[in-house]
Computed example of a mutant assay.
Amino acid sequence: MRFDVLTLFPVMFESPFAVSILGKALEKGLIQLHAHNLRDWAAGRHKVTDDMPYGGGAGMVMKPEPVYAAIQALRQQSPGAQVVMMTPQGKTFGQDDARALSAQSGLIFVCGRYEGFDERIRSMVDVEYSLGDFVLTGGELPAMVMIDAVARLLPGVLGSSGSAEGDSYADGLLEFPHYTRPADFQGMRVPEVLLSGNHEAIARWRRRQQLQRTLVRRPDLLESAPLSSEDMALLESIRRELAEEPA
Results as ranks from 00 to 15, higher is better:
residue 219 P to E: 09
residue 212 Q to V: 03
residue 117 F to V: 04
residue 55 G to C: 10
residue 38 L to N: 01
residue 14 E to V: 13
residue 196 S to G: 07
residue 105 S to N: 15
residue 12 M to S: 13
residue 4 D to Y: 03
residue 61 V to Q: 05
residue 124 M to W: 13
residue 96 D to H: 09
residue 1 M to L: 14
residue 148 D to Q: 04
residue 13 F to M: 07
residue 14 E to L: 12
residue 212 Q to T: 03
residue 231 D to C: 14
residue 4 D to A: 10
residue 35 A to R: 00
residue 209 Q to R: 11
residue 106 G to R: 11
residue 86 M to H: 05
residue 117 F to E: 00
residue 123 S to V: 12
residue 241 E to N: 09
residue 107 L to Q: 08
residue 237 S to A: 12
residue 113 R to A: 02
residue 116 G to A: 05
residue 36 H to I: 12
residue 61 V to H: 10
residue 61 V to C: 12
residue 107 L to S: 06
residue 197 G to R: 05
residue 59 G to V: 13
residue 53 P to E: 00
residue 134 F to D: 04
residue 7 T to P: 11
residue 189 R to F: 02
residue 1 M to G: 06
residue 96 D to M: 10
residue 36 H to A: 08
residue 177 P to M: 09
residue 205 W to M: 00
residue 180 T to P: 13
residue 12 M to V: 13
residue 152 R to Q: 04
residue 239 R to H: 13
residue 95 Q to G: 03
residue 30 L to K: 14
residue 162 G to F: 04
residue 15 S to I: 09
residue 40 D to G: 10
residue 208 R to F: 05
residue 84 V to P: 00
residue 184 D to A: 06
residue 75 R to F: 00
residue 244 E to P: 01
residue 9 F to P: 02
residue 75 R to S: 02
residue 124 M to N: 04
residue 8 L to F: 04
residue 138 G to L: 07
residue 82 Q to G: 10
residue 129 Y to C: 05
residue 12 M to A: 12
residue 209 Q to W: 01
residue 8 L to E: 03
residue 88 P to Y: 06
residue 76 Q to S: 15
residue 157 V to D: 06
residue 100 A to D: 07
residue 201 A to H: 08
residue 63 K to R: 15
residue 229 S to P: 01
residue 244 E to A: 15
residue 138 G to P: 01
residue 161 S to R: 15
residue 98 A to V: 07
residue 177 P to G: 12
residue 90 G to A: 02
residue 133 D to S: 11
residue 194 L to Y: 01
residue 208 R to W: 03
residue 212 Q to H: 00
residue 29 G to P: 06
residue 193 V to S: 02
residue 32 Q to T: 13
residue 11 V to S: 15
residue 113 R to I: 04
residue 224 S to G: 05
residue 48 V to D: 04
residue 170 A to Y: 02
residue 190 V to P: 04
residue 132 G to L: 13
residue 222 L to E: 09
residue 11 V to E: 15
residue 17 F to Q: 03
residue 246 P to T: 03
residue 170 A to Q: 06
residue 171 D to S: 02
residue 55 G to P: 08
residue 140 E to D: 14
residue 183 A to K: 07
residue 120 R to Q: 09
residue 173 L to S: 09
